[in-house]
């Protein structure tokens, strides 16, 4: 397992304005290694924009994001920093014309990893289907292969944007166990999901975003508590 590049992410007074319309308004938060943090909010509350900015792919209007001691702009090795950020979203970022094993081979080269692909395919339960073209995969298989892509990368910061969409119960269970095992180490994880039950099970800390404002940042214990917080603050 590669060493983490940083152990904290500090977001300070982050603002994003699209066409004079503020989408994220002065959000400050900290992500720490070994912690799986949940981010919830109504549609259009700015969750995906916030994630996009934390990934370094979307420039902010004002504010700053520090990955350990550096921002993206002043980082001495920006490519290495980008390599330490993993994103698993509803879209699995895969090439439909290639087989599962060809997709993973490509990403292994891209990420400079030497991980055993058969092991990864086994972990995501796709070993039998490894030579099928990804265009023939079901939604759940695509999502599992997307997870395989992130496992190969083994990033320091995991950005999970609705990763459970389209997955059946057994797959969600396996997926959650894997995330829990990874998050308990030295990785940082930020999970965006509308599934309050899953957020409650996985995350000890929850952030609530409402109309671009961070309206709650604290520990949670149950799904009911999250639901109550959401009802009050969305």
């Amino acid at each position: 397992m590669s060493a983490p590049l940083f152990s904290t992410v500090n977001v300070d007074e982050l603002v994003k304005v699209y066409d004079r319309r503020p989408v994220v308004r002065k959000v400050s938060l900290e992500l720490k290694a070994g912690e799986l943090t949940g981010l919830i909010g109504a549609n259009g509350s700015g969750k995906s924009t916030l994630l996009y900015m934390i990934s370094s792919l979307l420039p902010m209007t004002s504010g700053s994001i520090r990955y350990g001691a550096h921002t993206y702009a002043d980082h001495p090795d920006r490519e290495r920093l980008r390599g330490a950020i993993g994103w698993l979203a509803h879209q699995p970022f895969l090439y439909p014309e290639l087989t599962a094993v060809e997709n993973l081979q490509f990403f292994r080269e891209l990420y400079g990893s030497s991980i055993d692909l058969d092991g990864v395919l086994d972990d995501v339960d796709l070993f039998e289907a490894r030579n099928q073209r990804v265009r023939n995969y079901s939604r759940g298989m695509l999502q599992r292969l997307g997870l395989g892509r992130v496992i190969i990368k083994n990033p320091t910061l995991w950005l999970l944007d609705e990763p459970f969409t389209g997955l059946d119960r057994q797959t969600v269970e396996r997926f959650m166990k894997m995330l829990e095992a990874t998050a308990s180490g030295d990785r940082l994880m930020l999970l965006v999901s509308h599934r309050m039950d899953l957020v409650a099970r996985l995350c000890k800390r929850v952030l609530i975003l409402s109309r671009g404002h961070l309206v709650f940042d604290g520990p949670v214990e149950s799904e009911q508590q999250i639901q109550q917080l959401a009802d009050e603050r969305f």
Binding site: L57, Q91, F93, L94
Partner: peptide, 18 residues
Amino acid sequence: ERERENDCIRALLLSPTP
């Protein structure tokens, strides 16, 4: 277009690739 269709460009840019 192939990179954009499945948002693969995001995976390319979030890699240690120059």
